[in-house]
Simulated assay, not measured.
Amino acid sequence: MKREFKENESIDYCVLDYDCPYLPDKKTRMYYRFIPKATKELCSALIKRGWRRFGFSYFHPICNGCEECKSLRIDVKNFRPSRSQKRAIKKNRDTKVVIRKPTITFEHIELYNKFHKFKSKKSGWKYIPIDLQTYYEEFVVGAHDYGKEVLYFQNNKLVGIDLIDIVNDGISSIYFFYDPDFERLSLGIYSLLIQIDIAKKLDLNWIYLGYWVDGCKSFAYKTNFKPYELLEGFPNICEEAKWKNIDN
């Protein structure tokens, strides 16, 4: 018999330790909250407290003896693009941007796998191809009325996909991937600049960028978007989220 969940009802669980993808010789463990009918208000509260969302699952690390993962958010109202970020805007003057509800096509799957195969060769990522069912469960379901996909096109060719949640006080970056044949466009940087532009138009204050780990090369780009704040720990839903402005 299929289980019917009530609004904001959840199942909590954690996974066993596994090798940390960010720091060598470290183990990580994730705490999960499965919430099929999460309201925008609950999603907003969890994101503000350092949770991430993939599909119906919200999660954050609970690693034994390690607190290196810091939640980072960009101050939208005070953000000013750097020279390199302005160059990314110029590079994409012919890039078409479409915002819509998350979808799934074979084109999505092909682009995702092409990007990850490229990153496995360039950055040593473990390559695990995604299928239609897994993509659907991670990036389509759970979006409700606040999840969106931002599509990037060059001459009608899909070259980038950005998954986001538009929450009460900002935009939560879920995941971005692009066609490595168009690496010259700096689409990763440009996608964040588009998020900032969307947030400004909606009068939102923050871009929630997920985790930052000092010394992790994959996260180095995040601190180039200034000013930004870091969250102290992962407070409970009933506790205040204490974000600290970093002097930048």
Rank of each mutant, 00 (worst) to 15 (best):
Y18C: 13
K217A: 09
N224Y: 05
L111I: 10
P129M: 04
F153H: 02
T223Q: 15
K48I: 01
E7W: 08
I35G: 05
G142P: 03
R83Y: 08
M30T: 04
N224R: 11
Q133A: 09
S173A: 15
V167W: 02
L209G: 11
H116L: 11
K114D: 13
K242S: 02
E239W: 11
V141M: 07
Y13V: 13
C20G: 03
I99N: 11
A199T: 11
R80D: 12
I189E: 01
E9T: 10
Y135F: 07
G124C: 05
G160H: 01
F56L: 14
G233K: 08
K119G: 01
D145C: 03
D145N: 13
Y190H: 08
I109D: 00
S172D: 06
W206F: 08
P180F: 00
K70P: 01
R52C: 05
H144P: 02
C238A: 13
W125S: 05
C43S: 13
E138K: 10
F225W: 02
Y112K: 10
W51K: 00
W212G: 04
I99T: 10
K91S: 01
W212N: 03
V98C: 09
V97Q: 06
A45P: 06
V15C: 14
D165A: 06
F182T: 00
F153Y: 08
K119P: 01
I207D: 00
K157M: 08
S84E: 09
N248Q: 09
F234A: 03
P227I: 08
F5Y: 15
A88W: 01
I62R: 07
R29C: 12
T28E: 11
N78V: 10
P102I: 04
D25R: 14
C216F: 15
S71Q: 00
Y135S: 04
L42Q: 09
K90E: 14
Y13M: 12
D247F: 02
R3V: 15
G65L: 07
E240S: 10
S84Q: 10
Y58L: 03
F56W: 09
R100M: 06
I62T: 14
I174Q: 07
A241K: 02
L209K: 00
G215I: 15
Y152W: 05
F54Y: 04
I196L: 12
C14S: 15
R93E: 08
L202G: 07
K200A: 08
F153P: 03
D165G: 10
I246G: 01
R52Y: 07
K2N: 10
A241T: 08
K217T: 09
K101Q: 13
V159N: 00
P235V: 14
